[in-house]
Simulated assay, not measured.
Amino acid sequence: MTNRAVHIILLHGLGANGDDLAPIGRILAESVGWSNGDFVIHAPDAPVAPVTINNGYLMPSWFDIYGLDRDAPVDMPGVEASVERIAALIAPQVGDDPYVLAGFSQGGVIALRAACAAKRTPMAVLLLSTWLPAADQFVLPQDRKAMPIFIGHGEQDDVVPVASAARMGHVLNAAGATCVETHFYTMAHQICPEEMQDMAQFLADAVRQPK
């Protein structure tokens, strides 16, 4: 274990808030074996904005969603604005300490792109029940090729189709990613105990990787 605290940055899903995932971060850290002084939890709230797919209803959202099918337009300006916001948060709040980026559903979209946009490479990226919109515009920087990436998805997910996980893995591998793990679980659009165990093991392995 590093002698510096690991910062765990958790990005929630559509309509939720930071408090939704903060307990997950603590359970995850404790499962790895980290004590209170070993980790810091960051769970920022997405801005409140109208969401097209929900009839323009105002809710916490990292970007607008126009539709759920693969051919629906993507709000790339909204995605990029949230990515810039999270990347800018890392420098002052994390400093030179190691950090993990994790995101659930809509938050996972931002977590992956923020991991690529941040000045420093995260220790690991956890992508939970999420997808990769505008995959043809995704670029994995050369210095992020070996970045450990965990993909977890429920086989009964009725919000984000389970096929999204496999597609995302294929895109990452084609982009040159060398450390991608994809796990499927008997669950819906959620996080289950088995996934928590797998994520804890994934983080423990990431800590042991030579730097």
Rank of each mutant, 00 (worst) to 15 (best):
Tyr57Arg: 12
Ala46Asp: 03
Pro98Thr: 12
Val125Ile: 07
Ile151Arg: 10
Pro77Ser: 09
Arg120Ile: 08
Ala49Gly: 09
Leu127Gln: 05
Ala111Met: 04
Ala118Asn: 12
Ala5Thr: 11
Gly56Phe: 01
Asp158Ile: 10
Arg120His: 12
Ile86Pro: 03
Leu68Asn: 14
Val100Asn: 01
Gly25Cys: 01
Val160Ile: 15
Ala175Val: 06
Asn36Asp: 15
Ala200Asn: 07
Pro44Asp: 04
Glu30Asn: 06
Met1Lys: 08
Ala206Arg: 01
Asp45Arg: 13
Ile110Asp: 11
Ser164Gln: 15
Phe104Val: 00
Ala91Gln: 15
Asp71His: 15
Glu195Ser: 03
Ala91Ile: 07
Met76Pro: 02
Ala204Asp: 13
Leu11Pro: 05
Gly103Leu: 05
Pro161Glu: 12
Arg144Lys: 10
Leu140Arg: 09
Trp34Gln: 00
Leu11Ser: 09
Ala146Ile: 07
Ile41Phe: 04
Val100Met: 02
Arg70Cys: 06
Val83Arg: 10
Pro210Gly: 09
Glu181Trp: 04
Ile41Gln: 09
Gln106Tyr: 06
Asp143Val: 07
Lys211Thr: 10
Pro122Val: 00
Ala43Phe: 05
Pro98Glu: 07
Ala177Lys: 01
Ala22Lys: 11
His12Met: 09
Thr52Val: 02
Glu84Leu: 14
Val79Phe: 06
Ser82Pro: 05
Ile65Gly: 10
Arg120Met: 11
Gln142Val: 14
His189Asn: 08
Glu80Val: 08
Ala188Asp: 11
Thr182His: 04
Arg70Val: 13
Trp34Thr: 00
Arg208Asn: 14
Glu195Pro: 03
Glu30Ala: 06
Pro23Lys: 08
Pro122Tyr: 10
Val171Tyr: 03
Pro148Gln: 06
Phe39Cys: 00
Ala177Phe: 01
Arg85Lys: 14
Asn55Ile: 02
Gly154Gln: 01
Pro50Gln: 06
Gly67His: 14
Met147Tyr: 06
Asp198His: 15
Val74Gly: 13
Met196Tyr: 00
Asn17His: 14
Asn3Lys: 06
Val40Ile: 15
Gly56Ile: 04
Val6Lys: 02
Val139Arg: 13
Glu155Gly: 11
